[in-house]
Simulated scan of single mutants.
Amino acid sequence: MKFTVSSLMCRWKLRHLQKRKRKLVDIIQGTLGDDTSDVESLQYDFSIIREATENFSNANKLGQGGFGPVYKGKLQNGQEVAVKRLSADSGQGDLEFKNEVLLVARLQHRNLVRLLGFCLDGTERLLVYEFGPNASLDQFLFDQVKRSQLDWERRSKIIGGIARGIVYLHEDSRLRIIHRDLKAGNVLLDAEMNPKIADFGMARLFTLDETQGNTNRIVGTYGYMAPEYAMQGQFSVKSDVYSFGVLVLEIISGQRNICSRKGDSVEDLLSVAWLNWREETVSNLIDPILRGSSGLVGDIVRYIHIALLCVQENVANRPNMGEVLLMLSSHSLSLPVPHNPQILHFGDVNSTISESSKITDSKSICSSGNQDLITELHPR
Rank of each mutant, 00 (worst) to 15 (best):
L103G: 13
I218K: 07
L150D: 03
C10I: 04
G254I: 01
L328T: 04
A316K: 10
L137D: 04
E192K: 12
T123R: 06
W274Y: 15
R155H: 10
L270S: 13
N186L: 01
A203V: 11
G65T: 11
E124A: 12
H109R: 02
V101R: 03
L17P: 04
K2P: 14
Y303C: 15
M9I: 01
P319T: 08
E267Q: 13
F206D: 04
L116R: 05
F346M: 13
V145F: 08
D138Q: 04
G165A: 02
S351N: 01
Q18D: 14
I286R: 05
L208D: 09
L296K: 04
P379H: 09
Q64Y: 11
R261D: 00
M231N: 15
H16F: 14
L309R: 01
V311D: 11
H339A: 14
K262M: 10
D89P: 02
G68V: 05
G161S: 06
I286T: 13
N55Q: 09
R380H: 10
N320C: 07
Q92P: 03
I197A: 07
D348L: 13
M327H: 06
G201L: 06
G292A: 02
L137Q: 03
I27A: 05
Q312P: 14
V266P: 09
W274N: 12
T36S: 08
E313T: 02
G33L: 03
E355A: 14
D35L: 15
V145G: 03
G369W: 00
V266C: 09
I286S: 10
G369L: 01
A307S: 14
Q255L: 15
S87M: 14
L32N: 01
Y229L: 09
S57I: 02
T207E: 11
T123S: 10
A105C: 10
K157C: 10
I49Q: 03
L126P: 00
Q149S: 11
A226H: 13
A198E: 01
G292P: 03
V219L: 15
A203T: 09
S6V: 11
V83R: 00
G78V: 05
R22F: 04
R176Q: 15
S351E: 14
E96Y: 12
V219S: 08
T31L: 06
E153V: 08
V241D: 10
L86C: 08
P195F: 08
L309V: 04
Q232V: 04
S236N: 05
F3R: 07
R164W: 01
L373A: 11
Q92L: 08
S6D: 12
I48S: 15
D372H: 08
H345F: 15
K363C: 08
L141M: 00
L275Y: 12
S90A: 05
F140V: 00
H16C: 10
F235I: 07
